[in-house]
C-alpha cells in the first residue's frame, strides 16, 4: 500500500515537467476547438476521450475546413500511427500487470508517458502500474481541464512566447532523448531520424515528420549489420 503510494508519487514527480510543458498546448486545443465550431463540452469530451495532443490539433483543424468525417478520422489514425510502435515496445514491460491494468495503461500512453516509461526501464527499475498512473493521472486531469479553460477563456490567453513555455516540451524531450544515449546504435538511429524528419518537416510539414523520422530511425536499427551491432554494444 505505502509502496504503491510512494511509486505513485514518484510517477507524479517524474511527470511534473510534462504537466507544465503541455499546458499551452492543452489551452490552445480548447481555444482552437471553439474557433472551429465545437461547443465547450465537445472540446472537453475530445480531450477526455482521445487524449492525444497532436491528433486532436489535426482533427480540429480539418474540422474547421468542412472535410468529410472519414477523412478526418483517417488523418487522426495516420497521426497516431506511432502509437502502434510505442505499444509494441512498451507492452514488453507490461507483462507483470493484469490484463485490465494493461488495458488502462494503454489508454494513457502519450509521447511523454511512453518515453518516460522507457527511461525507467533504462534505469533498470520495474515499470509498476502505480508509477505509471502517478505520471498519467495528473497529466490527464490537467489536459482535460485545460481544454475547458482554453474553450471558455481562449480569447483572454496572452502570448506565451515570452515565458518560453511553448519551447519547454522540446527541452523536456531533448533531455529525455539524451538519457537513451547508452543504447546500442544510438548515434546512427538519431542521425537517420534527424535527417529524414527534417526533410519531412520541410516538405510534408508537421506532424508527418514524426512518423517519417521514427520509421527511418527504426529501419536503420533493424537493418544494421549484426556483427557491427554486437561491436557497438561493447
Amino acid at each position: 500500500m505505502s509502496d504503491n503510494f510512494s511509486q505513485f508519487m514518484r510517477g507524479a514527480k517524474d511527470g511534473f515537467p510534462v504537466v507544465i510543458a503541455a499546458t499551452p498546448f492543452g489551452l490552445l486545443f480548447g481555444t482552437l476547438a471553439i474557433e472551429n465550431g465545437f461547443t465547450i463540452s465537445e472540446a472537453v469530451l475530445m480531450s477526455a476521450l482521445v487524449f492525444a495532443g497532436a491528433s486532436q490539433m489535426v482533427g480540429i483543424e480539418l474540422f474547421g475546413q468542412n472535410i468529410a468525417p472519414w477523412l478526418i478520422l483517417l488523418s487522426i489514425f495516420a497521426v497516431n500511427f506511432r502509437h502502434v510502435l510505442y505499444s509494441a515496445t512498451l507492452g514488453r514491460y507490461f507483462k507483470h500487470m493484469s490484463k485490465s491494468q494493461q488495458a488502462i495503461a494503454f489508454f494513457f500512453m502519450t509521447d511523454p508517458q511512453f518515453a518516460a516509461s522507457e527511461q525507467r526501464g533504462e534505469r533498470g527499475e520495474k515499470l509498476t502500474f502505480a508509477w505509471y498512473m502517478g505520471m498519467a493521472i495528473p497529466l490527464y486531469v490537467f489536459w482535460v481541464a485545460e481544454a475547458w479553460l482554453g474553450a471558455v477563456f481562449g480569447s483572454l490567453i496572452t502570448d506565451t512566447e515570452a515565458l518560453g513555455i511553448t519551447f519547454l516540451l522540446s527541452i523536456y524531450f531533448l533531455a529525455l532523448l539524451m538519457s537513451f544515449r547508452g543504447r546500442s546504435l544510438f548515434v546512427p538511429v538519431v542521425a537517420a531520424s534527424a535527417m529524414s524528419s527534417s526533410i519531412a518537416f520541410l516538405t510534408l510539414g508537421s506532424p508527418w515528420h514524426v512518423s517519417v523520422g521514427g520509421v527511418f530511425g527504426i529501419l536503420v536499427a533493424a537493418c544494421w549489420p549484426t556483427r557491427k551491432r554486437e561491436a557497438s554494444e561493447q
Partner: peptide, 22 residues
C-alpha cells in the same frame, strides 16, 4: 533479433523526430 533491435530504437528515433522542428 532485428525486430527487437528496431523496437529498442523506437524511443530515440521518435523523440529525435519530435524535437527536430524546434
Amino acid at each position: 533479433p532485428r525486430v527487437e533491435a528496431g523496437l529498442n530504437a523506437v524511443p530515440a528515433a521518435v523523440v529525435t523526430a519530435i524535437v527536430v522542428p524546434a
